[in-house]
Design a protein around this nucleic acid. Structure first.
Lengths: 348, 348
DNA sequence: CAATCAAGCCAAAGCGCTTTGAATTTGGAT
DNA sequence: ATCCAAATTCAAAGCGCTTTGGCTTGATTG
């Protein structure tokens, strides 16, 4: 069923039918009602391509998802998508995803932009300084960055959590429990968020008068086995750390596994604080959280980024939108006072 | 830069330029060369919408991703996408993702099909008997099911792993280690794959003369906390199981955590075998695997499903493609002989 | 009562590409 | 030189929608 057929059926012009369906005012309510009814009963569905060609709008948002060096998709991504997808569904948008290797990125961005396949883009995983942003600005297509980059952050739209501040707080929290030898398992530090977390960690140490020790600061891809391996290394050191701050629950889980394998107990022998993106597949709504964590829902971030890009796509001349979210510091069972401080009390 | 401009520039007709670029034979090699060069230098990019409108082909594959009851996206999904996305990139296709609640599914499928937004669909998470398949058949759009459903599996294309057979093998493996009280942590049993696994589990028990005990068979969403909670329940039983078979590494990790929390050790006190979809965020290429597992890469499945749907989209009259993959049984450190059999030997 | 106006509708021109059917050129074969 | 088929090229007709500009009404106004 195409527009022409429907309009013939109704004895109206295509113009009128089109206007009736798209809510234009130059149509009598009477006619509009009839048209809508007919469209419904014959389940008329306008061809999206014809519509796109005629209007130039695609009602589609693109996500370019980089494969990491290990050829993996960041697992944070599926939750981000869940949130974004929900917003798209609600607002009548489609989501186009391109999985892309580092090398292909520029080509894909250009392609999406010049082919006008999407009304806007979400940029994932910004680097410390990210050349993609300049490219996108030059391509003249609306985009929203999940995270941000250090160069000219005022000049584009982004949504980020306050990585630095939350790692300051987490570090201070550990220090205030009496821990002084605090290890860091960070994400890859070419990523903007990881740099900020490292800076926060260092600030936190400094604020408590603790000298940083590079030999217990690591930067890896945030997957479970890396947490395990690094924790094993740490445990094998002559003076092992009494606390550890990790950038992902996956790293924390790996670390916890190593701690338990060594016959120790997280929260008693070694404290763990992690950043928690609230992976839905790890989340337990009932229990006391496994880990003390700086928490910020990546799913909510996805939802909000989607809303932002749609707002921008509809108002191209709008000023950039920037949102900085604060992470909560949530207490779990993975932290406790330093054994060094109060050995006798630990008898139970 | 549009086709008209390019053809004017070259002093050729749009027809010829279009044909030259699309590899039609009615163009001299000389001309083709010139045209391609000009297209390159002026970075001509045909409008995808115009192309789609003219050809009816979208070069886009749709994935309808259901949110589970807990409003979560199955984490298996991000790896599946990684694989599929790789194939799409290679073959010049786009991936359109709709995140959808149970209630919206039919509407979304109809919408995608009748709007001709996609050339084909991938169906995720088929139920035991899945009404979506009948719908899709009636909608006359190519689709590939990841997994399969029990009704008329010959009549459509699917890619599945041999869930039943792998769970038979896993169960027999545990039984042959001397375990006789084997628990099952299955996925939700309205899903087709979970039913098959349960059937395999029961067959495996029967083949070793073990009577099934429904009180140690569970069916939950496959997330870590569920593994933890169920294992705790099992450990609290008067006669606790000596082995456990889980349907996902996430469940296995939860179970392992509960076992360790109880001061026991997986592989020594309780054996764990799990199905392993090879989540990239848990995978460790170097180490001895954490879990003994029936293993099948969900990422490879994504890649292959993408290839299949493209093949089908290009040959609409082609017979359905069906592939049944066999899972490997891979030994890890989570299994060992039953303590009941050979207590003395366990001294080390 | 003619002039004016808004409301409601329509025909036709585009959006940028592919493809059909016809026209032109080329290159032997006669 | 002449003719015919093959090789190239082209003009124009879609693809299915939106949107511009104009045309009819019937009501309102001076």
């Amino acid at each position: 069923m195409k527009l022409k057929e429907l309009s013939d059926l109704l004895g109206l012009s295509q113009t009128t039918v089109s206007r009736a369906l798209n809510g234009y005012p130059e149509v009598s309510e009477e006619t509009r009602r009839k048209v809508k009814l007919a469209a419904e009963t014959h389940s008329y569905q306008p061809s999206s391509h014809a519509k796109r060609l005629a209007t130039g709008r695609t009602h589609t948002i693109g996500h370019v998802v980089p494969l990491s060096s290990h050829e993996m998709i960041n697992p944070h991504f599926s939750d981000f998508i869940a949130g974004a997808g929900e917003a798209y569904a609600r607002l009548g948008y489609d989501m186009l995803i391109s999985v892309v290797t580092e090398a292909d990125q520029e080509r894909v961005y250009r392609n999406l932009a010049s082919g006008r396949k999407v009304d806007g883009l979400i940029v994932h995983g910004p680097k410390a300084i990210d050349p993609r942003l300049a490219l996108l600005k030059s391509l003249d297509i609306p985009f929203v960055v999940h995270g941000r980059s250090d160069d000219a952050p005022d000049s584009y739209s982004w949504l980020d959590v306050s990585n630095r501040r939350s790692f300051v707080r987490a570090t201070q929290f550990l220090a205030d429990l009496g821990h002084s030898r605090i290890a860091l398992l960070n994400g890859l530090e070419d990523m903007n968020f990881a740099r900020r977390r490292r800076a926060g960690f260092l600030d936190g140490l400094a604020s408590r008068g603790i000298a940083p020790d590079p030999s217990i600061m690591f930067s890896d891809e945030m997957i479970e086995p890396n947490g395990y391996r690094r924790m094993q290394q740490l445990l094998a050191m002559p003076v092992r750390p009494d606390a550890i701050l990790t950038a992902s629950v996956l790293l924390a889980m790996g670390a916890a596994r190593a701690i338990q394998d060594a016959g120790l107990k997280p929260g008693r022998d070694i404290s763990i604080v992690t950043h928690d993106d609230q992976f839905s597949f790890l989340r337990d709504h009932n229990a006391v959280p496994m880990f003390t964590a700086t928490r910020s829902s990546i799913r909510d971030a996805g939802r909000r980024c989607a809303e932002m890009i749609i707002e921008l796509a509809n108002n191209p001349d709008r000023a950039p939108i920037q949102e900085l979210w604060e992470a909560e510091l949530v207490l779990g069972s993975s932290t406790g006072p330093s054994l060094r401080l109060a050995k006798p009390a630990k008898a139970l």
